[in-house]
Amino acid sequence: MKLKSNFSLGLDFKPLQSWPETVPAVALGSYLLCGFSLPEDHPVYEHPLQNSFDHSNVLKSLYPQLTLSEIARLFQTPDFSKVFTPEPIEKAYGFHLTPETQEVLSYLPQTPESFQTLLSQKKWSPQDLHPLLLLPLSSRAFVIEELLSHADSKQESVKRLELLSDLLMMKHSPESLSGMKLEILHQKRYPLTTDRDSAQKKQDLPWLSQIKNQFKRRGDKAGYEVQFFAGTPAELNKMAQNLTRVAEAWNSKS
């Protein structure tokens, strides 16, 4: 065991989980792999650093899971290439080795820390970020700010990113998109379908008041979700007759 002060901090990728104070940190040769923020006199176990050896398994043992942002930061550390090569690490953490992934990984450390944290918390994948890469750098900052300023779920965030990316590429100005609800962005991106759906929604159909109905879009189809309760065969018959009338009226209007 040696003290932490003897080791380089050149691999400090700011891991989200802090290393426990009660156990020694671990280094690969002279490069500290964990416990970066522990006191200088903290004990460190020195794992031998062998040339042309894949050390990704050591990293994986210390960090069974790493987020996209953490891996991106690790790749950007000054001593990374002295210890690791990217491919085994990408494989160890289940990323596809595509040039787009490489682009995401090299771009992410340049983004605000709060954005990196958001991606880590919501477990974004490199593919989720592809729409961001389509934009010029100047537009990316706006999109990132928008993603940070809405309390969206992951699914909503991913959707918002793609909608914003599309709309900016369709020459909408950032001002016209700033602070918009997801629904409004969707309407701007799908104006034709929005109009068609609204026209259909406004149709005056002869629904019985006991039949709850809601106009909905499901993928490439739009239509009515219907709900009713029938306590007797006679009631069920009444509902069925009404549904037939509604279908006829709907058919005549479409």
Partner: peptide
């Protein structure tokens, strides 16, 4: 991915 069914 396809157009809205009614447009198709």
């Amino acid at each position: 991915l396809r157009y809205d069914a009614s447009l198709r």
